[in-house]
Each structure stands twice: as C-alpha cells, then as structure tokens.
Write a protein that binds this DNA or RNA. Sequence first.
DNA 1: CATCAAAAACTCC
DNA 2: GGAGTTTTTGATG
Length: 156
Amino acid sequence: MKRAIISTQAGDFLAEYSETGLAQLHFPGQWKDREGEAAPAKWVKQTQRALEACIAGKEARELPPLDVAGTEFRKQVWDLLLAIPAGKTRSYGDLAKDLGKAGASRAVGSACGANPIPVLIPCHRVLASSGKLGGFSGGLDWKRRLLKAEGVLLTA
DNA sequence: CATCAAAAACTCC
DNA sequence: GGAGTTTTTGATG
C-alpha cells in the first residue's frame, strides 16, 4: 500500500493507494504513521485538487483513479454518491430506491459507513429523510462543515 | 412535536 | 443463525 499526505486548508489527510488507484482516505488526526512507499505524484496531485475543491464546496473536476474494495452493492451506492452534485443532498431512502431496493435505507447507511473515501465520495451529502444529519464516520463536525461550504442549509 | 417500536436490506462474526 | 448499521415510517401521548 502506497501512502501520501494530502495537505489542505482543512488539515492533513492521509491517502492510501493500491497498485491501481486510491483505496482509502483518512481525516486529519485520524491516522498515525505515514510510513510506506510513496505514491505516484500524479495521483497525489489529482487527489489534492479534488479534495480542496470538495472542501471549498465545489465540484471536483477530476478524481484520481479509485480502487475501492467492497461488495457490488456498496460500489453501486458509492457510484450514486459520486453522481450527487455539490450543494445537493439526498436521503438514504432515496438512494435505496434508485438501486431498485426501496426500503433498504438501512443497508445504504451501512454502505456509506463502509465508504473508504469520505469527502471524495460525498457521503456527507446524504441526510436522513427530514434533513437531519444522521451520522458520519469522520465526525459530524466534518459533515456540517462540508455541507456548509457547499451552501446547504441545515435544519438543525 | 417528541418518543417508541417495528420493519427491511446488507455485511460481518 | 445473530447482531449491528450514517434509516424510515407509523402509532401514541
């Protein structure tokens, strides 16, 4: 696993890459050692640009290649998340419906919780049905912050 | 409006 | 099988 520190306005993220692409992303303060092989500068640069765009509330124009590990269902969910434009939000139930599995909102939540690449895969744009935050693996502070940057008004 | 309870899909142990 | 999860919905007070 190759690693790289991605420094942004919001702090230092740790990105982990496999042989074929970005596999995981960790929030500032949620990682310890940064030992490991260096990742290709090209990927790191793409990751950094995408991250900064997202933190600034903009659409990431270009993402590095992703190599997410997960079941089909999860990958489908993540795909849908990537399709949500900046500044928009959807509910877990909505996503489930789009997958043809209405009622699987809980499973969607599960898939989001297993999302290895927060921010780039905008799990923060998914709220509970009444505009409530629900939860977030990196901490609700991040979720609020990212949404605010995108101009999303929270009912909380 | 706030709480409680049950339901439903999926993954991991 | 059984439990847990970033939910949802409907009943109840």
